[in-house]
Design a protein around this nucleic acid. Structure first.
Lengths: 168, 168
DNA sequence: TATTGTTATACTCTATAACTATA
DNA sequence: TATAGTTATAGAGTATAACAATA
């Protein structure tokens, strides 16, 4: 066992407070998380909420959410993709992608082109204004990414990306 | 610049495919993510989805979701907490906690006790069967945590917990 | 028969607002 | 006035199922 021993096992609850009239920690941030501190999922979820909130705020002026950004980015880098291909790649339900694309198409950022090879499917492309807009979104997203660096540090962000590289 | 240089800046899109009749990557996993690979939020979100799915599956036999587990754990470690205190500590809307507690109370895992100090608030406690059940949930959660280790490795999980320790 | 895009439904989660009873 | 718990509503997000057009 190293100094940073595995904390996979449930550890004894930190001194339970008396449930009686004694001062209970209803007030401050002295409420113990107990086993939660040993669960990666808890920290990851809280971090994910923080990071999405910052993304939404930073790209608020252009009204682009993380999922919309991911769809635009993938279409921009792979013009002609079908809706199924985008949905599978990003782990979005194809039924949901329909509504996402409806919105992006109404905003004239994306266009659905009827595929000649397979007339069931649509080839997805950015419009000319869509290309311009995406460039701006990427600049704002880079600004958001700098907020992440400010929050957890440059090296920690690098490590995080390396650790999670498998979850493409 | 080190070998693992910062990838905060938007990088040139990897060779765009021809949008014409050439083979488009609608089929395989050769679809480039472009700028998304440089965003911590994307990897974190994908990982968070994976980890929650594994948690839900691993604790499926006892029908406990991550949020329910977090509520039970915090009440177990801090008996007598008010609903507001739990909601604030875990970042849950107090309106939503009402329904979560309704469900947990119906399952006889938690009880709401009228507080004598402040008759507006409820002191939250685990029931006796709730204590027993939580012990089992913690064992299953530890099993889930071992799946995380299998997925990303023991050291990487440790590093992740350290990096995200601030997001309590 | 199977697949693509679509529509529809239901359930969860999030975000608000308003109400009540207490403080 | 303000707060704790509750109720209600609307909007995302997720999970399904079913349908039309096409393969």
């Amino acid at each position: 066992m190293t100094a940073s021993a595995a904390r996979t096992e449930p550890r004894p609850a930190p001194r339970k407070r008396a449930g009686n009239g004694a001062a209970r920690p209803n007030d401050a941030d002295e409420i113990g998380l107990d086993a939660l501190v040993g669960h990666a999922g808890y920290a990851v979820r809280r971090f994910q909420i923080w990071i999405f909130q910052d993304f939404i705020k930073t790209l608020g002026e252009v009204d682009i959410k993380p999922t919309q950004y991911s769809v635009l980015t993938v279409i921009g880098a792979n013009p002609g993709l079908s809706q199924m291909a985008v949905a599978k790649r990003l782990g979005i339900e194809r039924a949901r992608l329909v509504h996402l694309l409806d919105s992006l198409e109404q905003r004239k950022l994306v266009k659905r082109v009827k595929s000649k090879a397979d007339r069931r499917s649509h080839a997805l492309h950015l419009t000319a204004p869509g290309e311009t807009a995406l460039a701006k979104f990427k600049r704002l997203a880079a600004e958001h990414e700098r907020h992440v660096v400010e929050k957890i540090g440059k090296e920690n962000r690098e490590r995080l990306l390396q650790i999670l590289a498998g979850f493409t």
